[in-house]
Design a protein around this nucleic acid. Structure first.
Lengths: 340, 340
DNA sequence: ATCGTAGTTGACAGCGCTGTCTGATTACGT
DNA sequence: ACGTAATCAGACAGCGCTGTCAACTACGAT
């Protein structure tokens, strides 16, 4: 029944017009402190909550932020949602989640109707949809602001948040080198994720900077999945000639490497060091626990939401805003000194 | 710009009134086939999409389904979202996700404003919020229909979907008994989750039905987290006297058990069998892979969405609808015959 | 031809807000 | 005292739809 309370009730109760109530609600200027207090008291007394549909129909805001993703790592997408919600709720915004099938050929049909009906105030995109040209084009056509998290291509096309994937991979590689490793295997991430390339690049540069050469057969293509990591590790680790460490581009694949090591009775980290990337919950769930890179996922999503809520925009000829957050090397038990 | 197209444009283009367009859109009866076709052609030609705010302001539907959760296992909540979305999208509905902090003392303030502003058509609740009295009361007061997934208490208070947790635990226990285990440890799940009790119960009944007694020190309290499973397993497995198998009430805890076994150099499954529950992605990510129970999480969420979309309701004195879906015992490598 | 009935369509009034514009009040300089 | 500008408040018109109700059509039964 409290559902029936409208702005008119509040106006009557506080003896002002509905417009003034609206002003107070929206923190508009030019309301006397005294009037504002009366209205706020009435709002509290009646437990009035503005109807979001009416607001967005009449005004220019929908109070809705979208999160688009595809085939996510569950831990990743949950963190994104939590991080975004935290900011949105303060401002009375809500989160619409929309999984997309970005490999389907009807991506346009998945996105366009949704944008037109919902008229969201902004959208947060995660990989791989943040690099999907059709999605970006649809967003732009419908003039819906969006922020990409860790995009891989076309970096200056929109606002974005992320971290320095290249540097993080560089530092992880350096960590392994400092432990004495000279022969390190690397598993590349999914080719559709922009970060994959950057992490690979960081690895290669760290090796080169240390005067180490990377044999081509030490680099395997993976797809960010446990299975792909497992299979890559099988290729990397069977046969007498194997690296002393493997750096996988994400934790799921690193877990696959650990499984193969277990199966081959290679002790981690004594015989083989394993490093991952992301610090997913799974990283702490293996024994030994995984050395990895912590991505501030929730913080990145929060920053993205922030940009959207504050009306991200940039001038003609200017670069769109971008924000890089700090990562953290998390050294646990899966990496150790190379056996002598 | 396609954003500007309204129902009036469609009406003009097809030479009918906006009301008739509305009828076609909502599949209302009593529209001549010929007229319907003309309207549909115009809709397609103009790429018209009804504005959801206007619809919900004018009508009784909001085209919004909520998902409330707290402190979720990421895999679980992602599955719920995916399962619910799949059904919602067919009907033009969207998903609002709202994480709740059910341990805070302002639960009412988290829920009530949201319900009043959004006026969702229905809400899907997962554990533990599905058993939170304040949340349920708020939903009922605001007259928002809701369906609970695997509630633990007050079963006939609302529509619900779930699976037979008791039976699943019963069968898993029987599986262990058939492998020759007589001395089985059990780790109870989080006390706030209704399923915890049922799984515990199924375990106890299976043991009793097989004429086996359960020593009190073989049953440990856990909280569904890896850490709690780890700690419970330490108590269960250190000291000379230990069970030959451990059945944990969920996979995360089972993973904790595996980690302890690894650390204690107990071979799984030769020396110790480990069973989990849920079949989370993590179950396949350990070596050996976990024997567990597959919950049809996405299907349960889909069924819940279905009920909401079809207007779940029940008569006075009738029991609310409930739907139990089938589980599946997934026997992998972490359970084996007891050592002789 | 008349009536009844079901089928089909449209006019119109809101839903609960915000944006715009106009009017009333106050503050302050001369 | 008055004028002018700033400040504050309200009237009112929609936003784009759906619900209600009235009207009109077609057609078989009387």
């Amino acid at each position: 029944m409290s559902s029936k309370i409208t702005i008119h009730d509040v106006a009557r109760q506080s003896g002002v017009s509905i417009k003034t109530v609206s002003r107070v609600l929206n923190r508009e200027p030019n309301v006397k402190a005294d009037t504002r207090d009366r209205v706020q008291a009435a709002v509290a007394a009646l437990r009035y909550r503005p109807n979001i549909s009416a607001r967005s129909l009449a005004g220019s805001k929908a109070y809705l932020i979208g999160v688009f993703f595809d085939n996510p790592s569950p831990g990743y997408i949950t963190d994104v949602q939590l991080g975004a919600i935290a900011r949105c709720r303060e401002e009375g915004y809500h989160l619409i989640v929309e999984p997309l099938d970005s490999t389907a050929d009807n991506v346009e049909d998945q996105v366009a109707p949704m944008l037109a009906t919902l008229r969201m105030d902004g959208v947060i995109l995660t990989a791989p949809v943040c690099d999907h040209p059709v999605v970006l084009a649809a967003l732009e056509r419908e003039e819906v602001p969006y922020v990409r998290i860790s995009p891989g291509s076309d970096l200056d096309r929109s606002a974005r948040v992320g971290m320095d994937d290249r540097l993080a991979a560089y530092e992880m590689t350096k960590h392994l080198i400092e432990l004495g490793h000279r022969d390190i295997g690397f598993i590349i991430g999914h080719p559709d994720h922009g970060a994959s390339h950057l992490r690979h690049q960081g690895f290669m540069e760290a090796m080169a900077d240390s005067g180490l050469t990377v044999r081509p057969e030490r680099v395997e293509q993976g797809y960010f999945s446990f299975r792909s990591g497992f299979e890559a590790a099988e290729r990397l680790l069977t046969g007498g000639d194997r690296p002393t460490a493997v750096f996988a581009s994400n934790d799921d694949m690193a877990l696959g490497v650990m499984a193969v090591a277990n199966r081959l009775r290679l002790n981690v980290p004594e015989t083989l060091s394993v490093a991952g990337f992301d610090d997913t919950p799974g990283a702490k769930v293996v024994w030994p626990q995984l050395t990895t890179v912590r991505q501030p996922i929730a913080a990145m999503a929060g920053a993205a939401a922030d940009m959207l809520l504050n009306g991200v925009s940039w001038g003609e000829g200017e670069l769109p805003p971008s924000k890089l957050l700090d990562f953290e090397l998390v050294v646990r038990e899966s990496t150790g000194p190379v056996a002598v």
